[in-house]
Design a protein around this nucleic acid. Sequence first.
DNA 1: CTCTATTTTAAACGCTCGTTTTATACACTC
DNA 2: GAGTGTATAAAACGAGCGTTTAAAATAGAG
Lengths: 217, 217
Amino acid sequence: MAKALRTKDKIIVTAEMLFAEHGFEQTSLRQITSEADVNLASVNYHFGSKKALIQAVMARYQSVFMPALDAQLTELARRAEINGATYNTVDVLACVNAPLLALKQVRLDGPVIYLRLLGYAYSEIQGHLRKFTMTHYGNTVQQFFAMIQTANPSLCANTLFWRLHFSLGAMLFAQVSGQALREIAASDFGEEAHAEETLAKLLPFVAAGIAAPDPRP
Amino acid sequence: MAKALRTKDKIIVTAEMLFAEHGFEQTSLRQITSEADVNLASVNYHFGSKKALIQAVMARYQSVFMPALDAQLTELARRAEINGATYNTVDVLACVNAPLLALKQVRLDGPVIYLRLLGYAYSEIQGHLRKFTMTHYGNTVQQFFAMIQTANPSLCANTLFWRLHFSLGAMLFAQVSGQALREIAASDFGEEAHAEETLAKLLPFVAAGIAAPDPRP
DNA sequence: CTCTATTTTAAACGCTCGTTTTATACACTC
DNA sequence: GAGTGTATAAAACGAGCGTTTAAAATAGAG
């Protein structure tokens, strides 16, 4: 029983690293099992299939991130209600920071891993992740959406919908292509940067884009 | 000789359609050749390899788009120089509109196809497309970059670099996931939309994001 | 018509993939 | 310590992939 958990853990830890690095479809079970030093068949034994392994990997991060995000959003809304103040776009967007950092509990480089996984999940298995997220954490996502709406009362819901997905795209692209871009930036501008700094650069961009005046009021 | 071109054309026309729909790696040569009603081996005969076919497909669009973009940028710079006026971020970004529409020469739905191909090219074969684009059309890309810089003199080059790639990510994501998102938007807001309208929604978002004040001057 | 070069075809090759099977080793209860 | 359920191991399966081969068909030139 003790040895069993060891193997299952070795698989999941290795898998999420390789998935984050090369994507889900580009990572074979043979890569994972040889890197983790376990038998090929053990993936199917412990998880049932590759698809189930992918879901297990994603679920491990979502189950930490989403409740933490929910708490941040609720806290922000509560504070605003108490002192009658209002919150802006940046306030709402900043709610993702702490939940991201909380992923260090899962793994030291959890935040980076999770964002890269998200990027690949969206670009490869398209609808699946969205469906999974919405059925399990739909309330949190809707609260996030509603609070962005509250922070930008002049924008129509349709515009906001698209701008949030543009933002998501910007973030996912920055994560998936992040390492390559960071190397180019380093050679062009002489500035070494880490994934966290890239994320910090994203916030002003996204906040301004979302809060831009609606072209058709 | 006449029949030969017919086959080669059938392959490329079918390939770019399937590539745009499912991505490069997800589309097999057997899908392409059976859909195009040609023999499997004819791809390797006419193009040499699948990789070469992908490059041929991309080159067909780039060779129309990039020179057209170059012309637009040069024209904008010329007008600004003549009457001493200046141009802003939107002016520069709007330079991609006409070149996109010019892709209808290649194919009726050329603009949509090209943007989707771009999305997959960037997310799948990562560095390859960038290298190819830079070696063949590096001047045009640099001119675009420089003019965005001119339109936003207060931003440092590093910030601009990242914001342009954030913008690219937003656009690519909107294209690759565009159909699914459009269906969701239609069911949530009752608004049917086409790919062109999605692109129109992108411009204000991206322009505001790029032109946002630099957080560290 | 004949010869030659180009194009098309059918078949197979070699490889990788996820999955399944079958047998062996292990841990724990009685 | 025998017996039982769980875990690991090696091997093979069947399918799909890009590519290659070698023969058949087709076209154009002399």
